[in-house]
Amino acid sequence: MHVALAQLVTGLSISAVLLLIALGLTFTFGQMRVINMAHGEFIMAGAYTAYMLQGPLGHQSLLVALPVAFVVAGAIGLVLERLLIRRLYGRPLDTLLVTWGVSLILQQVARDLFGAPNVEVRAPTWLDGGVDVGGITIGANRLFIMAIVVVSVTAIWFYLTRSPQGRRTRAVVENRQLAACSGISTTTVDQRTFFIGSGLAGVAGVGITLLGSVGPTLGSNYLIDAFLVVVVGGLGHLRGAVLAAIGLGLLRAYVEYWSHASIARVVVFLAIVAFLQARPQGLFVLKTRSLQ
């Protein structure tokens, strides 16, 4: 029982990290269908933002880094969307290749600015230790990541369902032509959506600094996991992404306990392949009375 509970906590912790890195992609890939291979570099930009701020701000830097990283990564994403991606809408292969090139350029820029070796972001002292739950200690850093995820998911949900801008985003995602003919500026919606998606990647980058060192390839290491969560959840479905992250995180944690990390990864991939064979549209899909 104790083992099952311990793995449940570990699984939820992994789920939180998976969801954190996938949240931004639910916007740019899930909502806009843009396969952005440079998404990982927005995570990296967020992580380096935390690194830059820890000098002047000390132990409070992490809290400040969250909104700053959102803006920094969002701004980089916005520039990328304006300069390149908007010219490539509807051309997924071209977008994939171009953003992959941008990804390599951004990694090299990071090497030039911060050096090739990884750097450390010191966790603030208030994140030392952990919390004991039923004899299982959960690290404060893991709890902090879970808190970031809960706040981010709640904020996105409110944005999409309760704000005029969110309604416009959902309208454009569903039917771009009809949205334009209803008076919605699709260009503005594209820019805003890309800014938020990239900004969320920056927030993820700050969270990930609590789990390890920061290097130029930090984000690309997480990119595949992020895509898997979004695809398994169903493109553009926040609820699907949450459930997919929890499912994949728990599966990995339990298989890891009975075998080891590499086997767990293989099992997760096989499970995803089997799942997508049965349900290629992911966990959630648009349901209407139409036949499409």
Partner: peptide, 15 residues
């Protein structure tokens, strides 16, 4: 044509 994912009220509100 309507925005099928949005409610009836949201379809009107967004316009």
């Amino acid at each position: 044509e309507v925005f099928g994912q949005l409610t009836v009220w949201e379809n009107l509100q967004v316009a």
